[in-house]
Amino acid sequence: MNRRTRNALFQIHTWMGLHLSLFFAFMFLTGTLLVAGFELESIGRPAIWTTTAKEDRTASFGMIYEGVKETHPQSRPFVIVKRSTPWFVDQTFGDTGWGEAVTFWTDPVTGDVVEETRNLGFRNILRDLHDTLLTEKRILFVLISATSVLLLGQIISGLVTYRRFWKGFFRWPNRSNGLRSWTGSAHRLTAVWSAPVVILIAVTSFYFMLGGLGMNGTTPEFPPSSPRDSALPSGFGSQMIDTAEARAHAALPGFDPVVMLIPGSKADSLVFIGHVEGIAEFRGMSSVVLDPATLEVLGVLTPDGLGGLAKWKDLMNMLHFGTWGGAFSMALWI
């Protein structure tokens, strides 16, 4: 590349950096806090932290559901999540029975409720601030995600204008040439060090932009549940849930469900979501759908059944939020 082209790229890089620096600083700050948003929000809630080993987290979905209903008979659980992070107890989203949304935290061994929290917390507010500047408007989400193209342009133009940047990977800035020279060298060095992570963030943000535009890929549809008079059939409880989970295991060998979706309307099905032995986690989760009244298996969905961009959703989330390697990758992303 000739000097004229390189100088033009440098001018573009400098101009964009000057005018977008505050915006990207805001996005990176809120994004960094979001990586550990759940942990930051839970600092003052010692009851929901645990040191229970994974093999000892034996509470079934039925036990968790029963634990919530025993503590709050009028409550309506909707989603039960066995937390993937080993330092938190299990989590159930629902409402109090009179419309107020609430989260029930349950012991991963006994299924007993250990804490209750409201859903609108620090993490949700921070996420809305990061995604849409608290407006919750899709168009703004798309526009913010579209700046990933500008971010990627900054990275590429910076690497092109920094000739032989790979040789400067371990070239520590020299202070002998003054502060301005030192800060410029420090800027280039830290940019080269962080380039792999920032490229991943830019690429995944572009993927989210496509989702905001409606390009979500395809997922198969399953037969509807049998007609019933209420959202939950008569006798729905721990025994029925455990039977349903057993049938989900039989329908999909090697299945390890970590999420259960409880019907909230007469048309909803009972769904178990989790990973399958032999299928890499980055490929996504699998689902088993059952009729809540008859417990008949209506369908099984594995990552192979997804089409288009839907195939990449879990991988994009893991890379964007740095959860691909647990606590290590989260610390690295921060």
Results as ranks from 00 to 15, higher is better:
G31W: 08
R138E: 04
R164P: 00
F28D: 08
V102H: 02
S148N: 10
T302P: 01
F122D: 03
N7V: 10
L261F: 15
F272Y: 15
P73E: 01
I12P: 04
V68A: 07
T110H: 03
L189T: 08
S286H: 04
V288N: 03
R228A: 00
V114G: 00
V289T: 11
L134K: 06
W172S: 09
F321H: 06
A59R: 05
E281A: 14
F206K: 05
M16V: 14
I241E: 02
S205L: 12
T85A: 13
T110W: 05
D229R: 12
P46Y: 03
I201V: 15
V109A: 12
G326R: 01
G168T: 04
S225V: 15
A195R: 11
I199N: 08
L150Q: 00
K137D: 11
D291Y: 04
T190K: 12
I199Y: 13
F24C: 11
A251R: 00
P224W: 00
F88Y: 06
P253S: 07
A248N: 02
L200P: 03
K313M: 10
F255D: 01
T50D: 06
A331N: 09
T96P: 02
L232A: 08
E221R: 15
G121Y: 07
F169A: 11
P303E: 12
Y207P: 04
P223F: 10
D304T: 12
D131Y: 13
S205K: 07
P263I: 01
F208V: 02
P108Y: 02
F208L: 05
G97F: 01
E136H: 14
S287M: 14
V142M: 09
G184I: 08
S234Y: 01
P86D: 13
T96D: 11
G211N: 14
I64T: 05
F272C: 08
L9Y: 12
I139Y: 13
E39W: 04
G308S: 05
L126F: 09
V160N: 12
S265V: 00
F28Q: 09
